[in-house]
């Protein structure tokens, strides 16, 4: 990010930026930067809080009125504490199945995929209702059934059906995994029995309680054992977050 600012400014285009990792910005020294104490993925701080977002935005843009630089300024506000306990309310949604720590037996894999299909089917109606209400979804390439089929086919060694604009099995697996997570979150957003979970609560539920997370971990292991370099890289870095591995 800071490097982009340097290149643009060197070409005569004034820049300001938001910084999420202060140490990186201190090293790169872009012309103007506002460091914010927010988590990765949320540079404007809070979703659905226009006034808060506007304050962040203006603080970054106000740096244009400074006479010289480089400048690195700290945003003075942190995000308010979010409601605790929302994660607990998600746990009852998980399939009550205890999976083995590894899936070496064919029967274990069949049991996992069966639980995964049931989980997707149960969430699907809430996802569809949410889609009708909002009018759009952040699911990009793989609708829920298609994501489930692609991921299951890979585990079973079946040929993969790739969309025309996706060039490799590795990319398809990554997009299907992200779309699956988006589908799970949007399903949770729509349920009337839940308060909207924090991202931390959602990630805890998704990665610790769902059949889907076991499917993604099994795909990760399969990718790591592959002869295909792209699949090994995808399995190593791009399917399961570092803090959930």
């Amino acid at each position: 990010m800071g490097a982009l600012a340097h290149y643009l400014e060197a070409e005569g285009v004034p820049t300001t930026q938001i910084s999420l990792i202060r140490e990186h910005t201190e090293t790169i020294k872009p012309p103007r930067a506002l460091w914010v104490p927010f988590e990765l993925g949320r540079p404007l701080g809070l979703p659905d809080e226009p006034a808060f977002q506007r304050r962040v935005l203006l603080a970054a843009l106000d740096l244009f009125d400074l006479p010289d630089g480089p400048v690195l300024v700290d945003f003075p506000e942190d995000i308010p504490e979010q409601a605790a306990g929302a994660g607990d309310s998600l746990d009852h949604m998980a399939c009550p199945v205890n999976f083995p720590s590894s899936f070496k037996e064919k029967s274990d894999i069949e049991r996992l995929l069966s639980a995964f299909r049931s989980e997707v089917a149960e969430l699907r109606s809430w996802y569809d209702l949410g889609l009708d209400k909002r009018g759009y979804s952040s699911v990009a390439y793989f609708k829920p059934d298609a994501a489930g089929k692609l991921l299951s086919d890979f585990i079973l060694g079946e040929p993969l059906e790739l969309p025309s604009d996706i060039s490799s099995p590795a990319a398809a697996l990554r997009f299907a995994a992200q779309d699956l997570k988006a589908f799970y979150f949007e399903s949770v957003m729509s349920r009337p029995d839940l308060t909207l979970p924090t991202d931390e609560a959602f990630n805890h539920w998704f990665w610790q309680k769902t059949a889907a997370s076991n499917v993604l971990r099994l795909i990760k292991e399969t990718c790591l054992a592959s002869d295909d370099e792209q699949l090994r890289m995808t399995g190593g870095m791009l399917l399961v977050p570092l803090d959930q591995a």
């Binding site: 993925g41 404007l44 809070l46 979703p47 977002q53 997009f175 992200q178 959602f202």
Partner: peptide
Amino acid sequence: MTHLSTNFDRTGFQQDWNVVFPLDR
């Protein structure tokens, strides 16, 4: 969003794109 990394929160963007891309603001 088709960013490679899995190591950042995407639920904020899924709720409200402005938390990542503040075009409305």
